[in-house]
């Protein structure tokens, strides 16, 4: 089984310069890898650094030390040291991300928001919009919302736009940050099915799921983040 992503010796802390330079350690010596066709789940109490790990893997947070090795277009890239342009290329071609909240852009319709990652990869905009529409239908997003900007949508509606946006491409790695937090049971089941399909397609998934049942349903492996807690005696 291929290993498209290896995290090795990664540490992260925040230095709060506005608070007299206080250093807040987040995680230390993070070690794990994920495999194609599997869904690994980051687990641990809230505040332990699960989201921060996902954000580092997406290049959204900087990494203090350690390596994040990613197989990208046939080469191996250390995302922890990559140039911004490389990170952009990795995001476009290799790593998909479903964030917890949708950062809505004014005036852009829900369909276009969801279709954008495909269009960025060179797909025909109409085809991409049709794919987005299929996903919206599957996630039971009311059709009257499709052409509206998602800024005014409810939390659950925005989350479904976000899921469609994350699932629309065939990125080999997909990061999921609590994608179902505001969904009802029926839609949660749809997401479980979609994750199953991604696995069958050989995608390596890494997620955070607070809902225990959902975690049971999708997880092939649990990565316990408490093991990466910073050592008090540093």
């Amino acid at each position: 089984m291929a290993v498209p992503l290896i995290v090795s010796g990664v540490s992260k802390s925040f230095t709060m310069h506005l608070r007299g330079g206080v250093r807040i350690p987040v995680v230390d010596a993070v070690h794990f890898s994920i495999e194609t066709g599997q869904c690994a789940v980051l687990s641990g109490p809230s505040g332990v650094g699960k989201s921060s790990i996902l954000k580092m893997l997406y290049g959204n947070y900087a990494v203090d030390v350690g390596q994040i090795l990613i197989r990208h277009n046939g080469t191996l890239i250390d995302l922890a040291r990559a140039e911004p342009r490389q990170v952009m290329a990795v995001r476009r071609d290799t790593i998909g991300y479903v964030s917890q909240f949708l950062r809505a852009v004014p005036r852009v319709s829900a369909l276009d928001v969801a279709a954008e990652p495909l269009v960025q990869r060179g797909a025909d905009p109409d085809t991409a919009r049709r794919r987005a529409a299929d996903l919206f239908a599957r996630l039971n997003l009311p059709e009257k919302l499709w052409d509206l900007p998602p800024a005014t949508f409810s939390g659950g509606e925005q989350q479904r736009v976000n899921i469609a946006r994350g699932f629309i491409t065939d990125h080999p790695i997909l990061l999921l940050d609590e994608p179902t937090a505001s969904l009802d049971a029926a839609n949660r089941a749809v997401v479980v099915a979609m994750i199953g399909e991604k696995k069958a397609d050989g995608v390596a998934l890494l997620g955070i799921f607070h809902d225990a049942d959902l975690r049971e349903a999708v997880a092939d492996r649990i990565i316990e983040v408490t093991g990466f807690a910073p050592q008090k005696a540093a």
């Binding site: 709060m16 954000k55 959204n60 900087a62 911004p84 990170v87």
Partner: peptide, 30 residues
């Protein structure tokens, strides 16, 4: 896509826009 933060005529931080805004490193960027 990318950001350059300047202060007193010098570049004090650069990086992906969302990285700089979500995890600012330099005191002034923070």
């Amino acid at each position: 896509h990318r950001m350059v933060v300047m202060k007193d005529g010098r570049v004090i931080e650069t990086g992906l826009t969302d990285r700089v805004l979500d995890d600012p490193r330099a005191p002034y960027t923070q």
